[in-house]
């Protein structure tokens, strides 16, 4: 058994959980797109405040969110370092062999790490607060236009929701297999890299066999429950937008406006060649004023 994992529904019954899944999907997409427009640290602070607020309302513990960041930690550090050493522009702070650290490099790599973290936290917030079935319904609705060009939208959506539904089962299975192999003296955390890779075989093969067996049984179960019996499938749950979705949209829209105004309106007042962007310049000037 494991602690809460990435991609697992975390029931608390909060207002966020009760948002319409279609709305939540659209909001998440908007959020993901617009965090890439954020230019200044002030904008990042706004996003941070937003996500903290959402988390507080959702009652999902911060620990769970931090865990999802931990999953991509290696990627995060790698991207950060790569940008830090490889960024060519800006004032050079230090140089060694092919590596060069510039002020703009520092700025850029911090921002890219923040962006990636916000991205993963946002996505996990979606999966923490939306059941796989809701997700399927939402995705199916979003992809609905594709039905007219003969794309099996429902099949795709169902496949996705089954995949999500089986994540906990397969995690548990992985745990059991790891325990069983450990009990036979297998070591997964010692030795050279290729030895460690090799030590994964006794886990991966049983896991693969088990996944195939499950898939086989699931296929029979789908057939037995008349899957694909009629093209006119019905739905028990009707999705309905409510005032909550409207409020949520207004809040998100304000965040987006703020990001855009910061990035495109205030940036034009920053002197050419200055490292700060957007509202950061005003904060910067204000602080230097205080010091002077």
């Amino acid at each position: 058994m494991r602690d809460i994992a990435f991609g697992q529904y975390y029931p608390t019954g909060s207002p966020i959980h009760r948002l319409d899944p279609r709305a939540k999907l659209v909001f998440s997409l908007l959020y993901m797109v617009f965090i890439f427009f954020a230019k200044s640290y002030v904008a990042y602070l706004a996003i941070f405040t937003f996500i903290v607020g959402v988390t507080l309302i959702s009652k999902v513990p911060f620990r769970a969110l931090l865990k999802s960041v931990k999953i991509i930690l290696v990627l995060l550090i790698f991207t950060g370092l790569l940008n830090l050493f490889m960024y060519r522009d800006g004032n050079i702070l230090g140089e060694w062999w092919i590596f060069r650290i510039t002020d703009k490099g520092v700025d850029f790599s911090i921002k890219i790490m923040l962006r990636l973290s916000f991205l993963i936290v946002g996505t996990s917030m979606l999966t923490f607060t939306t059941t796989p079935t809701e997700m399927t319904d939402g995705i199916e609705w979003l992809l609905n236009p594709l039905k007219y060009i003969k794309i099996p939208v429902h099949d795709i959506a169902l496949t996705m929701s089954i995949a999500l539904r089986f994540i906990p089962s397969l995690m548990e299975e992985t745990d059991k297999i790891i325990m069983a192999q450990k009990a036979r003296g297998a070591a997964f955390d010692t030795g050279k890299l290729h030895e460690r890779a090799k030590s994964l075989i006794p886990i991966l093969i049983p896991l693969f066999v088990s996944a195939l067996r499950r898939a086989d049984e699931l296929a029979d179960a789908l057939d037995a429950r008349c899957y694909n019996a009629t093209p006119h499938r019905t739905k028990m749950k009707k999705l309905a937008f409510s005032y909550r979705d409207a409020i949520a949209f207004l809040i998100l829209a304000s965040l987006i406006c703020f990001i855009m105004v910061d990035a495109y309106y205030f940036t034009q007042f920053v002197p050419v060649g200055h490292i700060a962007s957007g509202l950061d310049y005003y904060v910067f000037s204000w602080i230097s004023g205080l010091i002077a």
Partner: peptide, 30 residues
């Protein structure tokens, strides 16, 4: 783990090698 042998539920789900001999030999090899 050499002193305590553990046979889990459905232990056949942990089999992985291509022959019976190699699979049983996994523990001693470790």
């Amino acid at each position: 783990r050499t002193e305590v042998g553990m046979v889990f539920q459905y232990p056949e789900h942990q089999l992985f090698d291509d022959t019976v001999e190699k699979d049983i030999g996994f523990g001693p090899k470790n």
